[in-house]
C-alpha cells in the first residue's frame, strides 16, 4: 500500500554506504557454515568419543549422503537459472525402477541399466524445460506435474512392488567401495568438482546466474535464455536419474517408496548452501558443506538416541531458517 515504505524503494542516500556490520576476514558470515560443521563434529566427538569420530561412521555418512548430495546438485542447477525442479525425487525413483527393471525384465547388461535410466531422466528434463520455456508453464507447476507422471510410471511398471530379481553382483559393486572409500561418494565428488567449475569458472555459469537474476535483461543482452533453461532441466533430470542408478546399486533393488523423502533434504541443503561461502547466492561448495552439516547433525543426534522422527523435523526447520537467511527478511541484514 502507498503509505508503507517498500524495501525496493531506492534509497539514494544509503545506497553508497559501505557494507555495514559485516565481519572481515575470519569473522565474515560466509565462513559460519564451516565453523558450524567443525563445531558439530567436535561436539558429538566429545559426547560419543567411541562411536562418532570413527572411520566407520565417516564412511557410513559419506555413503549415505552421496545420493542426497547428488540430488541437491540436481536441484541446484535449474535453481541458479531461477527455476524450481520438483520432479527430481520422482525421477530418481523412476530411474531406480528402470535400472533394476532392466535386469528383472530384460536380463540386460550392466551398462544398459546405467545408460537407459539416465536417458529417461534427461528426457523428463527435456519435457520440463520445454514446458517451462516454450509452453510457458510456471516451473513449480510443470515439474510437480511431470514428477507425478514419473512416479505414476514407476508404480505402473512395478505395480507397487519392489524390483529385486536378477540383479548381478557387478551392478551392486558400483554401489560398494574402493579401498575403503565408498564409490557413491566418489561419483558425488566428481559431480561436485564439475559443477563447481562450470558454475564458478565458466561463462555458462555466469549466464545462468544472470538468467536467474533477471531473465528479461538476460534475453536482451543476447544470452540464449531458452536453450540454457532447457539445458538446466536436462542436466537436472540426468543427475537425478544417475543418483537413482547409484541408489539402486547401493540397495540392490528398485523401491518406488524411496524417492519422495529425499526431496526436502535436497531443498534444505541447497538453500542452506546459499548462506555459506557466497551469502545469498546458491553455490556448489556451500551446498556440499550444507549436506555435510545436516548429515553430521542428524548422525550425531541419532547416536545420542534421539528418535528417528527428529530428522525430518530438523530438516524442515533448517530449510525455513536457510530461506529466511538467503531470500527472506534477514537476507538484507546479512548481505549489507
Amino acid at each position: 500500500m502507498a503509505t508503507a515504505v517498500t524495501e525496493q524503494d531506492q534509497d539514494k542516500g544509503a545506497s553508497t554506504r559501505p557494507r555495514a556490520g559485516r565481519g572481515r576476514g575470519a569473522l565474515n558470515p560466509r565462513w559460519f557454515g564451516f565453523y558450524a560443521l567443525v563445531a558439530i563434529v567436535v561436539l558429538f566427538s566429545l559426547l560419543r568419543p567411541d562411536t562418532y569420530p570413527t572411520m566407520t561412521n565417516l564412511t557410513a555418512i559419506l555413503s549415505n549422503e552421496a545420493v542426497g548430495c547428488m540430488l541437491a546438485m540436481a536441484l541446484f542447477v535449474p535453481l541458479v537459472a531461477g527455476h524450481y525442479d520438483l520432479s527430481i525425487a520422482n525421477v530418481l525413483t523412476l530411474s531406480m525402477i528402470c535400472s533394476v527393471g532392466m535386469f528383472q525384465e530384460f536380463q540386460a547388461p550392466i551398462w544398459v541399466a546405467v545408460v537407459v535410466p539416465v536417458l529417461v531422466g534427461a528426457l523428463i528434463g527435456l519435457i520440463n524445460g520445454v514446458a517451462v520455456t516454450v509452453v510457458g508453464i510456471n516451473s513449480l507447476v510443470a515439474t510437480l506435474a511431470t514428477g507425478s507422471c514419473a512416479l505414476g510410471l514407476a508404480l505402473w511398471w512395478t505395480n507397487g512392488t519392489i524390483f529385486s530379481e536378477n540383479v548381478p553382483s557387478g551392478f551392486q559393486d558400483l554401489g560398494g567401495d574402493l579401498g575403503g572409500i565408498p564409490l557413491p561418494a566418489v561419483y558425488a565428488a566428481v559431480l561436485i568438482v564439475v559443477l563447481w567449475w562450470a558454475s564458478e569458472r565458466m561463462p555458462v555459469g555466469r549466464y545462468l546466474y544472470a538468467l536467474g537474476d533477471n531473465a528479461e535483461a538476460a534475453r536482451l543482452t543476447g544470452i540464449p535464455v531458452t536453450r540454457l533453461t532447457i539445458g538446466t532441466f536436462v542436466v537436472s533430470g540426468s543427475i537425478a536419474a544417475f543418483a537413482g542408478v547409484v541408489q539402486a546399486a547401493v540397495l540392490g533393488s528398485g523401491n518406488p517408496q524411496v524417492g519422495p523423502s529425499l526431496l526436502l533434504p535436497a531443498f534444505a541443503a541447497v538453500f542452506l548452501g546459499g548462506t555459506i561461502l557466497y551469502l545469498g547466492r546458491h553455490n556448489v561448495l556451500g551446498t556440499v558443506v550444507a549436506v555435510l552439516v545436516l548429515a553430521a547433525l542428524v548422525g550425531g543426534l541419532e547416536q545420542l538416541g534421539v528418535p528417528f522422527y527428529v530428522s525430518p523435523l530438523l530438516k524442515g526447520v533448517v530449510l525455513l531458517l536457510a530461506v529466511a537467511l538467503t531470500t527472506g527478511r534477514f537476507s538484507k541484514v546479512r548481505s549489507h
Binding site: Y209, A210, D213, N214, A217, T221, G280
Partner: peptide, 8 residues
C-alpha cells in the same frame, strides 16, 4: 526490469 542484474 530489462537491463539490470540486481543481485550480481
Amino acid at each position: 526490469a530489462q537491463a539490470a542484474f540486481p543481485n550480481l
